[in-house]
């Protein structure tokens, strides 16, 4: 597979994740995993361009994103469990605590 194929693949993955974020209104859980999919697609792009440019900074940024994704997932799951305990549902439309 060439770089074009990798970029196409990461684009497909990113668009699927965007669809999961935008079209999902019933479950915060799928929203969180869709954000993880977005980060994976971005990671793939970083690795592809790291190979293309022969620059190790792309791999370093991929590791950086992985660490941030792990922290994001941990906090997101904790907030999700707390939200379910307090509200009894995980529907996105009821998560209006910060609405003005």
């Amino acid at each position: 597979m060439t770089a074009v194929n990798y970029l196409t693949f990461s684009t497909i993955l990113f668009l699927l994740a965007i669809g999961g974020v935008l079209l999902n209104s019933q479950n915060l859980f799928i929203l969180l995993m869709s954000i993880e999919l977005m980060l994976l697609a971005v990671n793939m792009n970083f690795l592809v361009f790291s190979v293309l440019l022969d620059d190790m900074m792309g791999q370093l940024l991929a590791l950086f994103i992985l660490a941030v994704a792990a922290a994001d997932s941990a906090m997101g799951l904790a907030i999700l469990v707390t939200t379910y305990r307090t509200r009894g549902t995980m529907a996105v439309e009821y998560a209006t605590g910060m609405k003005g």
Partner: peptide, 20 residues
């Protein structure tokens, strides 16, 4: 990626899914 996603992302997901 395998280690972090297996340990820090995919393992907590079932534990978060179980109570909800």
């Amino acid at each position: 990626q395998i280690l972090i996603h297996a340990g820090a992302v995919n393992v907590p997901i079932p534990f978060a899914a179980m109570p909800v």
